[in-house]
């Protein structure tokens, strides 16, 4: 019996010692990577434009934007990120990096609440009080587990992503380069349409919070809706986001609506996402429309619009 107790005590000791040592290594691996969120928390960036949103926001191809605009751009969008998480990321970005001149928000991040990413955010609880509080409120058990077993913090999609990104110069070229497949086109032609329930009021309030934070730091904001493949939204009601925002929060902010701006299906990766060529076309279109005027040297404007 004494032998069993000794073995179990040694097991506990080895497990926790290993946990702390391995998690230190994992910490270095994560924050040493070029993954967008790792760079955010590493800090010290001076970007003039940042982009937030979900996978549709991710479609902004920043190398092309930088080439065209001549300013440093950084894409902070990520698949299925919602306004709550975007708000925390933006506030943390301002804590660790210089405030940008322009914040672009792809409005589709108002849609829904992605529970999977709530779990993935635990990788930041050592770096962000906001995410720590967020996790504690969402899942106290998981928060306690993170505090006890540090390895568990790295049980996150973001950590896996960072390991792939770390071998690259940057993850900023991470834009879908695929061409929409015939199977998807067939599916759409057979009647598959966008699922577009109106976002709840709570999401608009979270968006309003981001707008207030931006305003406090003198950051101009562009609310934007990226293109859909027109056939994919044909016959669907396109939600009046601008009206909802005004009605729910009292904020009147123009929404740049490009939902039907691109018709060529070769510029799409699927019904919801433009591909890298579509991104180039959209950016050119937006430059022509004055979308980037706050950061263009020849048209520098006051920071508050």
């Amino acid at each position: 019996m004494k032998r069993l107790i000794v073995i179990l005590l040694v097991l506990l000791l080895v497990f926790f010692a290993g946990d702390r040592i391995i998690s230190l290594g994992l910490h270095r691996m994560f924050y040493g990577s070029e993954f967008r969120f790792a760079r955010l928390y590493r800090g010290g960036m001076t970007n003039e434009v940042i982009i937030m949103g979900n996978s549709r926001g991710k479609a902004y191809y920043t190398p092309y934007m930088e080439e065209k605009l001549g300013v440093s751009c950084f894409n902070l969008a990520y698949d299925a990120v919602d306004t709550k998480i975007a708000g925390i990321l933006f506030a943390d970005y301002l804590d660790h990096n210089a405030a940008p001149r322009l914040l672009i928000i792809e409005m589709k991040c108002l849609q829904g609440e992605n529970k999977a990413h709530e779990g993935s955010m635990k990788v930041f609880i050592g770096s962000s009080e906001r995410f720590s509080d967020f996790l504690r409120a969402k899942s106290f058990k998981e928060w306690v587990l993170c505090k006890m077993v540090h390895i568990y913090r790295y049980n996150s999609e973001f950590f896996l992503r960072a390991q792939i990104m770390s071998s690259r110069q940057a993850d900023q070229s991470w834009v879908n380069s695929a061409l929409i497949t015939q199977a998807i086109l067939d599916d759409i032609s057979q009647g598959r349409r966008i699922q577009n329930p109106p976002p709840p009021r709570e999401r608009y309030e979270e968006l309003a919070e981001i707008l207030r934070t931006a305003s406090e730091h003198g950051v101009a904001v562009r609310l934007v809706l990226n293109p859909y493949l027109p056939q994919y939204v044909a016959g669907s009601t396109l939600l009046p986001y601008e009206t909802y925002l005004r009605d729910y929060t009292g904020i009147s902010e123009h929404v740049w609506d490009y939902r039907l701006a691109i018709t060529d299906s070769s510029l799409f990766a699927d019904g919801r996402h433009i591909n890298v060529n579509g991104s180039r076309v959209l950016i050119d279109m937006q430059i022509a429309d004055g979308f980037y005027d706050p950061v263009l040297p020849q048209k520098k404007q006051p920071l508050h619009e």
Binding site: I7, V10, L11, V14, F15, G18, D19, I22, L26, G119, E142, L145, V149, I151, Y152, Y154, N155
Partner: peptide
Amino acid sequence: LFVIFISVLLWLIFLFGNFF
């Protein structure tokens, strides 16, 4: 060997497992 093996399994569970 028992201590090392169980520790490795637990580390893998915590690092990669789905706890939902």
